[in-house]
Amino acid sequence: MRVSVPTIPDVLLRSASPAPSTSPAAAVERIASFLAPGNVAVITGAGASVDSAIRAYRGAKGRYLNPNYKPIFYHELMEPTAKGAAYRRRYWLRSYLGYPPVRDALPNTTHYGLAALQYRSIVNKLITQNVDGLHHKALAHVWDEPRMEERILELHGRLRSVRCAHGHLTDRDVFQDQLSAANPQWQAFVDELDAAGRQPRTNPDGDVVLEGVQYDDFVIPDCPACLMENRHNDIQKPEVIFFGESISKEVKDRSFADVESCDRLFLVGTTLATFSAFRLLKHAIELRKPVLLLNVGPTRADQVPQVEKIEIPSGAVLRDVVRAVLGSEASADPVVADMLQSGITKPPPEDEDDTVPRAVG
């Protein structure tokens, strides 16, 4: 089986030219005028979470930060063989170490800016490629879970739950505790890291850089629900879409419906390298929807003439965009006012020179 890793075609990267300079004031004015009519659908990518100290996979040049990027594919992770078990041990050890920083990450100013626009129904649908749950965190104090599920679609799934090969779901924090109990030596290692204030380099999906480590002794616990059915089953994966795995028909259909129901499409912090996102852009264009892209660096849409692009970090402008769209209501509405005062700005270190080969999910 041959499965390719999604990326921006080299021909686009080679032909990419520096984007025209846009001042923050001009960017705010243009984005606000685009959003002001309302009924907007938003698609976000990894760039939206960078200010929450979560690294993007691709740098400002549009290429993977790690040129030796080697993902674990879905068929490898779920294979019911000794080879598959080895892949799972490698994945779950790295994820065990890398999940807590993603779990504990806080929404940034981009998340709260978009949350304010959602709360005021300027943005009616938000589709995110991110699996970190930060859009939910930014709204959790004002919307209940059903409301968030209705208005936020996690296109590539979520890290905060685990699904076994027989379909049983386990909360990720519960599963993390099960991994700790089954691997006390690695729990001790985590405690040492915490005491030293150190953390392995973590990627957007919770994977970490880990060199010179043997995975053979890492224990993956059986699914508790399967044990209750008198069945041993340690074939489990986070409820995210791995490379080579198809998005469910339900999620695909809903993503298309969200684009169809909007009047315009706003793309934030995404290179559109994955086809699941790029096809939504294509669908919007086919329906003659206006499209605005806010991203730093090359994207798969840079030579699509129907796409207007502004190249400036979202965190530098989105709060001012909300104020421009809502006017005096931005300060008069206490919920919006609080959101515009919230959000961290803590970008990870720049590491374009990261060349350590690693396998990720």
Results as ranks from 00 to 15, higher is better:
4 S>N: 00
6 P>F: 01
11 V>W: 11
13 L>T: 14
15 S>C: 08
19 A>K: 12
24 P>H: 09
25 A>V: 02
27 A>Q: 11
28 V>K: 03
28 V>H: 04
29 E>W: 00
30 R>D: 01
31 I>D: 02
36 A>N: 02
36 A>P: 00
39 N>T: 00
46 A>F: 03
47 G>K: 03
51 D>S: 14
52 S>D: 11
56 A>P: 04
59 G>P: 05
62 G>K: 10
65 L>K: 09
65 L>S: 05
67 P>K: 06
68 N>D: 07
71 P>Q: 02
71 P>W: 02
74 Y>T: 01
76 E>A: 09
76 E>V: 13
83 K>I: 08
83 K>L: 07
85 A>P: 02
86 A>K: 11
89 R>C: 02
90 R>Y: 05
91 Y>L: 10
96 Y>Q: 04
96 Y>W: 12
99 Y>E: 09
103 R>D: 13
104 D>R: 14
104 D>I: 02
108 N>I: 05
111 H>N: 14
117 L>H: 07
126 L>E: 03
127 I>A: 05
128 T>Q: 04
128 T>V: 00
130 N>L: 03
134 L>R: 10
139 L>W: 10
140 A>L: 10
147 R>V: 15
147 R>E: 15
148 M>F: 12
150 E>A: 14
150 E>L: 10
162 V>N: 10
164 C>L: 10
169 L>C: 06
169 L>P: 04
172 R>I: 12
172 R>V: 07
172 R>S: 09
173 D>S: 15
177 D>R: 15
177 D>E: 15
178 Q>G: 11
178 Q>Y: 12
180 S>R: 13
184 P>Y: 13
185 Q>K: 06
189 F>P: 01
195 A>D: 03
196 A>F: 00
197 G>P: 02
199 Q>A: 00
200 P>R: 00
204 P>E: 03
204 P>F: 00
205 D>A: 06
206 G>S: 01
207 D>Y: 00
209 V>G: 01
215 Y>H: 04
216 D>V: 02
219 V>S: 09
220 I>L: 11
222 D>H: 07
226 C>N: 02
226 C>M: 04
227 L>G: 02
227 L>V: 09
238 P>D: 02
240 V>A: 02
241 I>M: 04
245 E>L: 06
249 K>F: 14
250 E>L: 12
251 V>H: 11
253 D>G: 12
257 A>G: 12
258 D>E: 08
259 V>T: 10
259 V>W: 07
260 E>M: 08
263 D>H: 07
265 L>C: 12
269 G>V: 09
269 G>Q: 08
269 G>A: 06
270 T>R: 07
271 T>Y: 05
272 L>R: 11
277 A>P: 08
281 L>G: 15
284 A>D: 13
285 I>R: 14
292 L>S: 13
297 G>T: 13
303 Q>K: 14
308 E>D: 15
309 K>D: 06
311 E>H: 08
314 S>N: 13
315 G>C: 11
316 A>Y: 10
317 V>C: 09
321 V>Q: 04
323 R>H: 09
323 R>M: 13
324 A>N: 08
324 A>M: 10
332 A>R: 11
341 Q>W: 14
341 Q>T: 14
344 I>A: 09
345 T>F: 15
349 P>G: 10
355 T>V: 12
358 R>L: 08
359 A>Q: 14
